[in-house]
Amino acid sequence: MSGLSFIAPKTVEEAVRALAAGDGLTKCLAGGTDLLVQLRSGRARPEVIVDMKRIPGLIGISEREDRFIIGAATPGAMISECGPLCRAWPGITEAVDLIGSQQIQGRASLGGNLCNASPAADSVPAVIAARATCVVVGPEGRREVPVEAIVTGPGQTSLRKGELILEFHVPKPRPHQADAYLRFIPRTEMDIAVVGCAVNVTLGDKGVCRDARVVLGAVAPTAVIVTEAAEALVGHWLDEETLGRLDAAARRASKPITDKRGTIEYRIKVAGVLARRAAAIAFKRAGEC
């Protein structure tokens, strides 16, 4: 009953023009697994919906020498089927695979998961931990920005009017670099993360951590890069003491809220637990590659 219109542009330029036109709300449609829920509930009342999926490059995964390029609207199921990506970044592909059901996997994308700007988005901590960037195009051209620069708060992004995310660039792992992502949900499937944690480490001689990134989800308005947690790892083996420092750092970095999905106290505790567990997996993987 609104004056909603739907367009499915076949070029980036056409999409940018459509997104930039008019004064009303315009929404990019990738997998639609968040947008359609918002449309139906009346939480989002856009004037224009721009379907991204017919733009060349928006769906698909390609590989260059130093990076993977993932189209922003590539459905999760396609990401999980990409063998080289799964081998390179099991943490990322497992995180993507955790988003919703198999049906959701048929549609949900990295671009949508990021731009929906939920603090609990599963794929976001893992791609940030891998130091991925995204390519943004808009009326003023093209820019490449770190993924962590996109979301500014719940439901809020730094994208300007007319901008869309074209693709994600994920650097390939160095030797002995690996990642892991874990989340906690009350059931075994179908829930939104109560806490999520990605750990990405690079090991040096004798398994000592040389470089690390630890990113928490659902414990703050956006995914949080926990520098102190990375510092707890760098220069150390993953022994009990290191794990204890990591746990404490993750807890300290958690500034969650109490809502229907979890309490402040619970989220803080579990953030520490998941950081330890994800680190154990990442270290093990890094040691084996």
């Binding site: 009350p186 059931r187 075994t188 499937e189 179908m190 829930d191 939104i192 229907k260 999905r261």
Partner: peptide, 29 residues
């Protein structure tokens, strides 16, 4: 036993009127 419950906000409004947050068991549970 494990997860199902009605959650109300401070104004007496139901906060979880959907199968996302009213968590009935799924096959993998």
């Amino acid at each position: 036993a494990l997860n199902e419950e009605y959650i109300y906000d401070k104004d007496g409004r139901l906060e979880n009127p959907g199968f996302l947050d009213y968590r009935i068991p799924v096959a993998s549970d």
